[in-house]
Design a binder for these strands. Structure first.
Lengths: 390, 390
DNA sequence: CATTTTCGTGAAACCGATTTCGGTTGTTTA
DNA sequence: TAAACAACCGAAATCGGTTTCACGAAAATG
């Protein structure tokens, strides 16, 4: 009720012009005083004095609006004016303050990514490249990357909520998508832009970038089959993630194309660390009719498998062939060096950033889907089978 | 003057209540229309409808200023009012938009970190932990972390300039400080808060967190000397960085305390990768009177040294003892497992974030300096010398 | 009982940008 | 020559908050 009254008062159209003029004067003078005081305080508190758009306008003798439009490429500014404005702005060292822009435009020019800190999975080693890719692409358009971590999946979700509520970022990159992903559910409902690294169960309203890992797995199987292997095992990653699902599919497609039967007993799951790989590998190698080759969905697991093989006096590359996926640096230094599909994480980061920026700018999610490829790095962990009698 | 006018208006005792009622209606309806239109546009452009401070004030029948002050803990708001405001704000799901606050307060509540992407040095493996630490501490106070990368040192500097010019961040964390660091020079001059990870040549106006690596190196030497080693070599990292300087000092102090002479020929520098380590190690192992133990400043170099030793048929742990520094995961899986000083990168991140936030809030840099410690993880790469006849 | 403080609050200025809306000019067109 | 129309630009509103300042009422003081 009270504010109603004020609203009405506000609407009343006003009073003598002369009076207004005088008031302006007064205010202006007051303003000046305050300004200098402000600078003074600034000096004491260690803040910088920024060049604002007002300063530029003043020094050019134009209005703020003209300067703003000139700088932002509006069509109703004369080319000559634009040039002049741009030059002086540059000379004066004027850089628009992003948050001041943000409050009007609704864009903070920042991409968000929330990492799950407890995920022991592979992503750590290539985090640097991945971030580099994102940041690189983002910088091109003067965007920034805000990264945050959370100790567990729930924390990830609440961090995402916080960041989008406070509008600290314009959209999210979601690494390691699950088949059923709560982050996706939330963001879709909240209508916040995002792009996934990896696919998910229900693609509606989702853009994504992913590596065609199923193709890689398929190629791995076919390569081994081509060498003469008949019993090819598979050690998969965490099955709740989408990547594990598609990699298994790739493995099966490979077997099919090679004319080999799929055998449950040759498949192990949820191996993403050395220890996991050692355990899973042990199981496969202890089978009465053990596989002569094993495809791994994750490099670290493959390295664990090395240990399991060594414990059983099997020589990798001859007694047992291994082809893996990820292309981490350690693989190169294992003995024998690991044959693996390498993924370009920097490129992935770049693509994701690119897609997300497009998404934020309004592109439809259905148009924002890309599949990259992994490259086989042939080293020494695979070869024709040595014991072979079927 | 103008406010006089407003005062007068305030005094006017009012208008037909019916009218007021009507206006309210109208306003309300207009409001609604605009609102729905906004949502509509929002839908198309992917924006959310936020709850603003105005909404909260309106629904409480108070002014924006009261709400703001209540939420920010000003002392001139009645406790009862504060409570009421806080409750409704929470219920309505009001989250202040950071950039709107920033424009007035001058704080965006964001820490910046610019990484050098080409630096092959050790920082990659533990980047995840490090970031986790920073982010964790930052989140506590509702701050965020903005990370950016640049392809080379010059790019790092210009990225820092950009971020601070646009005021996208309130301060910086500087990883891997050099002895003479241009970033420090710039930030000091520009009066932008920062905290270094590592010390630097000229400490004035600088706060930092660092690990006491010199102490670790000293301990390593003393441990080896205590086992009976007389010729202890040293493989250092990149000498332009501060860390290499202090680690060398630690090595020398250790020798001194053990009563051993310093010998130039036993020291190699600039080894930060496996390849570097292999080369440097080769040089040391090919000396006519080779060292029986080697201290490495960087784990990756130590792993390279493994290769050099293997090539010369030296058994690590007996023929050659190695103690290194970093505590990377691969060390655990090397054979023999690497004895190394492990640094807690998560904790480092937390400390740095903490210091930086304090710095931004006005603490003097001299009061913001902390030294952490590295923990020796004893594994199997060191032991008493086997050939020993002096 | 008059006067000064304190307390609690609202109005309006302010932060630094963008964007809407009109108002001058100078050119074309009728 | 008047009217219509661009092309250019400025004033003011706007975004979502914070902060200053004045003011009314209640409490404390003289």
């Amino acid at each position: 009720m009270r504010w109603d009254f004020w609203k009405i008062l506000q609407k009343i159209k006003v009073q003598p012009v002369a009076e207004t003029g005088f008031v302006t004067q007064t205010l202006a003078r007051e303003d000046a005083v305050q300004k200098s005081d402000h600078i003074d305080r600034a000096g004491r508190q260690g803040k910088k004095t920024r060049v604002t758009i007002k300063d530029v306008a003043l020094s050019l003798g134009m209005s703020k609006s003209t300067v703003s439009r000139a700088l932002n490429g509006y069509s109703d500014i004369a080319e000559s004016t634009r040039l002049k404005v741009k030059r002086t702005a540059h000379v004066m060292g004027y850089k628009p303050m992003v948050q001041a822009q943000a409050i009007r435009t609704g864009l903070v020019r920042s991409l968000g990514m929330v990492l799950n800190a407890d995920s022991h999975d592979g992503h750590r080693p290539f985090l640097a490249d991945f971030i580099d890719g994102i940041s690189r692409r983002a910088s091109e358009d003067n965007w920034t990357l805000t990264v945050s971590t959370a100790p567990h999946a729930l924390g990830v979700l609440s961090t995402i909520e916080r960041l989008s509520n406070e509008h600290s970022v314009d959209g999210f990159i979601l690494p390691r998508t699950r088949i059923e992903d709560p982050r996706v559910r939330y963001l879709v409902k909240a209508n916040v832009p995002f792009i996934m690294f990896g696919r998910t169960g229900d693609d509606r309203d989702c853009g994504w970038y992913d590596i065609n890992a199923e193709l890689a797995m398929e190629k791995a199987v076919l390569r081994l089959a081509g060498m003469g292997h008949k019993r090819i095992g598979f050690i998969n990653g965490l099955t709740r993630y989408m990547y594990a699902k598609v990699r298994l599919e790739g493995y099966r497609t490979g077997l099919e194309k090679a004319g080999l039967a799929y055998d449950d007993r040759l498949v192990q799951i949820d191996a993403v660390t050395r220890k996991d790989g050692e355990r899973a590998g042990g199981v496969l190698l202890d089978l009465s009719r053990r596989p002569t080759a094993i495809v791994c969905a994750v490099d670290l697991a493959a390295l664990g498998l090395y240990k399991a093989a060594a414990a059983r006096y099997l020589t990798i590359g001859s007694d047992l062939s291994i082809i893996s996926y990820d292309g981490i640096a350690e693989g190169e230094y294992a003995s024998p060096p690991l044959t693996s599909f390498s993924v370009d994480n920097r490129k992935a980061g770049e693509c994701l950033a690119d897609l997300l920026i497009k998404r934020i700018r309004g592109a439809a999610p259905e148009t924002l889907r890309q599949l990259g490829e992994a490259d086989l790095i042939v080293r020494a962990s695979d070869g024709p089978p040595i014991i072979h009698s079927e």
